[in-house]
Amino acid sequence: MSRPFSLILATLLMMFPQIAETIYSPALSDISHHFAVSPELAAQTLSLYFLAFAVGVVVWGRMCDIYGRRPTMIAGLLIYAVASLIALCVSNFSYVLLARMLSAFGAAVGSVVTQTMLRDLFKGKQLAHVFSLMGIALAISPAIGMYSGSLLSSHFGYKGVFTGLFSLAFVLLIWAFLALPETKQAKEIAAAPLLATAKIMLKDLQIWQVAFLVASFNVCLFAYYSLAPFMFEQLGLSTRLFGYTGLILALGAGAGSLLNKQLLQRGACSPKLVLLASVLTILGGIGVLLLQQSALFVLPMLLVVTGFGIAIPNILSSALHAYQDRTGTAGALLGLLYYMLIGGGLMLAAWSQSLGGVILICGSLATLISIQRSST
């Protein structure tokens, strides 16, 4: 390996898709007013983003098995940078949607290829430890995105946000080009057959459980980013204040990730921890429903993001143990499945405009699945 593997760069690449998504969230109100579209239509940009992201996950995951991890990562980052530049220049909302979908396609490389590289290099408890650290990074990345997005949006409008997105992609592209190593093992001569792998995974109940669990916790989180800007606007509160809530929620998610790390060290099993996270999500959803006419609805969201910080590392670290011979392809197909579920869930969330209801439904679904997994 000509370049040493950097966990710092890997962490930033893992954080990149969430930062790229949440930095856009504070600009939704400005986009709605600038292009004269309804809040529901503006919020749909998030659901379309995740559907395009799902396609990107399977394409990049497949490419990293065929062509290698490094060239795939560089190609995805390049596409994201170009798409962000297009979004900055267009003046029609339909073109903004298309540019956002193209950027989502490129951003997916940060998720699936980084996870594949980590599975190349780490196994067993070491992998669980690394994913736990990644969970902490993922917990704070929405806060970074929201705070940055609120500053850019309040000073420069939505174009400031797109400029920030382009700059972020450009920096990561140069860094990856200069420092990212190839982690694909030499013995991996041929990529596993895509359709054959898909057939195996679609018959695997554990894969479906993982996909619905990942989707449930992510829909809860991103429903906040898509619906809360308009809730704040209705309450007469500023975009910058909405951005500050990301810092509060990051504390909850970070606390969840640290608590998860401590519980794992004390011998707690992953299924039980995911069940705990699911119950916290239900309690948070009830609180949001009761307080959604007040800015205090942010407080029970702390329970939701704490659950996210506990659940996601435990779900992802054990998701593909049975697919070690085809991690890129299997990771791509799993990502395709759960990102399509996330996109569909966010479409329903944008239609319902009920943050508390969405969280309660997702938390209940996660609880049912977690109980079944814990019992087996």
Score class of each variant (00 low, 15 high):
I8D: 10
I8K: 08
L9M: 10
T11N: 08
L12I: 10
L13V: 10
P17K: 00
Q18P: 03
I19D: 03
T22D: 12
Y24N: 09
S25G: 02
A27P: 03
H33C: 05
A52Q: 03
F53P: 00
G56D: 09
D65C: 05
M73N: 04
I79H: 09
L98M: 12
A99H: 04
S103T: 12
V112N: 03
T116L: 04
L118E: 09
K123R: 14
V130G: 02
F131D: 02
F131W: 04
A139M: 10
A139T: 02
S141D: 07
L152E: 08
L165E: 14
S167C: 14
V171R: 08
F177W: 14
K184P: 01
Q185E: 13
I189V: 09
L195M: 15
L195E: 13
K199D: 14
Q209C: 11
A211L: 03
Y224V: 00
S226L: 06
P229E: 08
T245E: 05
A268R: 08
L299T: 07
P300I: 05
P300Q: 08
M301G: 07
V304K: 04
G307A: 05
N314A: 10
H321I: 11
A322I: 00
Y323I: 05
T329K: 02
A330C: 01
G335P: 01
Y339C: 11
M347Y: 15
L360T: 12
I369W: 10
